[in-house]
């Protein structure tokens, strides 16, 4: 059986889960649904040649 969490541990776990949910990767479709697009006068700005988002290995 699992050792029951203390209220503090439980709260900590909930906060971590909430932040994980708010920080999970976004698909292109989700971005399109979320942000104004071409009909609203916005275009996707292509990254400069050689731009590579660095993914932090600690995450």
């Amino acid at each position: 059986g699992n050792v029951p969490l203390t209220p503090e541990q439980y709260q900590e776990m909930r906060l971590q889960r909430e932040m994980w949910e708010r920080n999970r990767p976004l698909s292109d479709e989700e971005l399109d649904a979320m942000l104004p697009g071409e009909k609203d006068g916005y275009k996707i700005l292509a990254p400069p040649a050689g731009y590579k988002p660095v993914i932090d290995p600690a995450r």
Partner: peptide
Amino acid sequence: PIRQIRIGTT
């Protein structure tokens, strides 16, 4: 790291 930039054109 930047996921995406959208810039206003109108």
